[in-house]
Amino acid sequence: MSVEPGSVRPGGRTARVRAAVLDAAGDALAEHGFAQLDLADIARRADVGKTTVYRRWGTVTNLVADLLLDMAEQSVSRADTGTLLGDLTANAHLVQRTLTDPRQGPLFKAIIAAAISDPRTAQALRHFYETRINEWAPCVTLAIERGEVPEDTDPHEVIRAVSAPLYYRLLVTGEDLDEAAADRAAQAAATAARAGTYHRSHS
Score class of each variant (00 low, 15 high):
Gly6Phe: 01
Gly6Ile: 01
Val8Ile: 00
Val8Arg: 12
Val8Met: 03
Val8Gln: 10
Arg9Phe: 08
Pro10Cys: 05
Pro10Ile: 07
Pro10Lys: 14
Gly11Pro: 04
Gly11Lys: 07
Gly11Ala: 10
Gly12Arg: 06
Gly12Lys: 07
Gly12Pro: 03
Gly12Asn: 06
Arg13Met: 13
Arg13Asn: 14
Arg13Leu: 11
Arg13Lys: 06
Arg13Thr: 07
Arg13Trp: 11
Arg13Cys: 02
Thr14Phe: 02
Thr14Ser: 14
Thr14Met: 07
Thr14Ile: 08
Thr14Leu: 15
Ala15Thr: 08
Ala15Pro: 13
Arg16Asn: 10
Arg16Lys: 15
Arg16Val: 03
Val17Asn: 07
Val17Lys: 04
Val17Gly: 01
Arg18Phe: 02
Arg18Glu: 12
Arg18Asn: 08
Arg18Ile: 06
Arg18Thr: 14
Ala19Met: 13
Ala19Val: 13
Ala20Thr: 10
Ala20Cys: 08
Ala20Lys: 07
Ala20Gly: 05
Val21Phe: 00
Val21Trp: 05
Val21Cys: 01
Val21Gly: 03
Val21Asp: 01
Leu22Ile: 13
Leu22Arg: 12
Leu22Gln: 13
Leu22Glu: 09
Asp23Val: 06
Asp23Thr: 14
Asp23Glu: 14
Asp23Cys: 09
Ala24Ser: 15
Ala24Phe: 09
Ala24Pro: 04
Ala24Tyr: 12
Ala24Arg: 13
Ala25Gln: 02
Ala25Lys: 02
Ala25Trp: 01
Ala25Thr: 15
Ala25Pro: 03
Gly26Glu: 15
Gly26Phe: 05
Gly26Leu: 12
Gly26Arg: 08
Asp27Pro: 00
Ala28Ser: 15
Ala28Met: 14
Ala28Thr: 13
Ala28Lys: 03
Ala28Phe: 05
Ala28His: 04
Leu29Lys: 12
Leu29Ser: 13
Leu29Val: 02
Leu29Trp: 09
Leu29His: 02
Leu29Asp: 07
Leu29Pro: 06
Ala30Asn: 01
Ala30Asp: 01
Ala30Thr: 11
Ala30Phe: 03
Ala30His: 09
Glu31Asp: 15
Glu31Trp: 06
His32Glu: 12
His32Tyr: 02
His32Ser: 14
His32Pro: 03
His32Thr: 12
Gly33Thr: 14
Gly33Leu: 03
Phe34Asn: 07
Phe34Ala: 11
Phe34Arg: 05
Ala35Phe: 05
Ala35Met: 02
Ala35Ile: 00
Ala35Val: 11
